[in-house]
Design a protein around this nucleic acid. Sequence first.
DNA 1: CCTTGACCTAGAGCGCACTCTAGATTCTAG
DNA 2: CTAGAATCTAGAGTGCGCTCTAGGTCAAGG
Lengths: 139, 139
Amino acid sequence: MSLSIGDVSQATGLSVHALRFFEREGLFLRDIPRTQGGQRAYERPDVDWLLLCNRLRESGMPIATVKRFADLVKEGPGNEPDRLALLREHERQVEAKIDELRACLAVIHDKVVVYERHVEAGTATGLWSPPLDAEPRRP
Amino acid sequence: MSLSIGDVSQATGLSVHALRFFEREGLFLRDIPRTQGGQRAYERPDVDWLLLCNRLRESGMPIATVKRFADLVKEGPGNEPDRLALLREHERQVEAKIDELRACLAVIHDKVVVYERHVEAGTATGLWSPPLDAEPRRP
DNA sequence: CCTTGACCTAGAGCGCACTCTAGATTCTAG
DNA sequence: CTAGAATCTAGAGTGCGCTCTAGGTCAAGG
């Protein structure tokens, strides 16, 4: 039994607009067939693919790159090393992003701690308190 | 000694365009003064603030939120609990994003492993091999 | 001096990833 | 049968975060 665009929207969390957009952009692994009435008729594997796409997108892969991956898959067997390279490269980037976020988190957490101490102990130390003032340049 | 926009660009990695844009958007903690010739004259604390902004931005804080934080700081002492709340909320979001990325990474890594096995062992199992086919809907 | 590069303002333009609109058709429940 | 919900296509519009342009002014080295 096939799935309507609404079903797929529900199953993937993507809006129907996004699904039509993805189709125009060629992100699917096949041409989505239509019913005799002209409505999209998806199948489970389409949903599975979209769920993977969601993970790739959430982790920062641009649509153009998802499309490159989809194109490789559509080409059929023979280019698995290329697909592997693409995935490995993305994996590397996600790891790097996690590291970056952790570094940011450390900085932010330090600020939180400073403010906590400040808030629960009267008044301040170590904050960007009143607007900074400075001498004019080449006065 | 004050810093030119080029100096600050170098020090922060932000383009001079971005620095002027940030100023228009009110992200600075003060009005950046000008030299008699009309050029921006930054000081070290401006750079320090921008470096913090960079961390906030890298970790996904929208410019509007950075501005809210800047506005709180500019208001001066008294609203530290609000600043703390803002930072804590962002901290929470960054932690959530890291978790999300880790989940994505697990999925991606699984795919990588599947492809590795496939590539270094002849032909396939468990991939989106040839384009999926399916029966038409309500035929 | 004078050239060359950095800087100025105001505002237009861009890339991305959707999102929404219009106007028509199809599907479904009563 | 019919009303209302869902879907269709093609294309315009949106929000974000810059980035670039035009048409100048300013500043530092030779």
